[in-house]
């Protein structure tokens, strides 16, 4: 039983202690708006844990469990198996984890769930570091970005989660960005209709960790898509479809100059980052041409 002390907006409480300018609320509101009340959430520790609540308070009106960082996909798979045993084939089991809980710590359980093709929807909101614990670098942190564990800029690039997911032959996987909400909603809608392990990777810029004014969250996310630093794509039945084409592919200089985490990096680092971005896009384009 859930006691309502306030009127929720959609299925999410309106006042959540996420930072000023954080768009995780928007991701939750849009995802739950589409999936509806027939949903069970698994949320590991991280920024999103404020939705499942600490103590008796909750910020969502659907059932949720806060697991551990390393096993959110395993918990979700277990819940899905329980539902299957009960003959319940309509409740959506959704795991919403950050990049640390997905690409670093939770990767093995996600990999297992993808291998078994458990009937779950796994959503990774990617703010490209462990923002909740004080901006430690994760394996999703991009090249040259400064975090508290990589103060001089990360010397290596980031893990490519969507390509790891594609290697598991899941029925549906997609990347999305908080700047392109209709696209995000379309992908969640599509994922809802499909059975099996579905993965969504959503870019969610972090004003605190990336170092930019809170008003610029959507602008930065849009710049990331336009420069190719974040590629919108869909993977369905082994076929890759690229979404919105970057308006200025490889033009990451402006995108990086807007963020304090890239402050003070040299021109050669910007050139390397641009090359990484263009090379990755060329690779994905080739993938999209296959089959």
């Amino acid at each position: 039983m859930l006691t309502y002390t306030i009127q929720p907006k959609g299925l999410v409480s309106p006042g959540i202690n996420t930072c000023q300018g954080c768009m995780i609320d928007v991701i939750f509101r849009n995802v739950l708006d589409i999936l509806g009340e027939d949903t069970a959430l698994v949320i590991p520790p991280g920024c999103a844990a404020q939705f499942s609540g600490c103590g008796p308070e909750s910020a969502i009106t659907v059932p949720g469990i806060q697991g551990n960082l390393e096993n959110s996909a395993a918990i979700a798979a277990g819940i899905a198996a329980g539902f299957r045993f009960q003959g319940n084939d309509h409740t959506q089991v959704v795991a919403i984890a950050g990049d640390g809980g997905t690409v670093d710590i939770g990767l093995q359980s996600l990999s297992g769930a993808m291998e078994r093709n458990d009937n779950i929807l796994y959503i990774c909101y990617d703010n490209q570091a462990y923002m909740n614990t004080g901006i430690q670098g994760s394996s999703s942190t991009p090249y040259a970005a400064s975090t508290t564990t990589t103060p001089a800029g990360k010397p290596v690039g980031s893990k490519d989660l969507i390509r790891i997911v594609m290697a598991h032959n899941v029925p549906y996987a997609a990347t999305a960005s908080v700047s392109h909400l209709p696209d995000l909603r379309k992908k969640v809608k599509k994922a809802k209709e499909i059975k099996g392990c579905r993965v969504l990777h959503i870019l969610s810029p972090c004003p605190t960790g990336w170092g930019y004014p809170s008003a610029k969250t959507v602008e930065i996310a849009r710049k990331a898509v336009d420069s190719g630093a974040w590629v919108l794509l869909e993977y369905e039945n082994g076929k890759v479809t690229l979404g919105r084409k970057p308006a200025a592919l490889g033009d990451v200089a402006e995108y990086m100059s807007m963020q304090k985490r890239f402050a003070g990096i040299g021109e050669d680092a910007v050139a390397t980052a641009a090359k990484n971005v263009t090379d990755r896009y060329a690779y994905l384009e080739k993938l999209a041409q296959i089959g």
């Binding site: 306030i6 006042g15 008796p56 909750s58």
Partner: peptide
């Protein structure tokens, strides 16, 4: 385990 059973909103307008 700890069970969330109250839907709350924090006074974020004060920020």
């Amino acid at each position: 385990g700890p069970c969330s059973h109250v839907l709350v909103a924090y006074n974020t307008g004060s920020w």
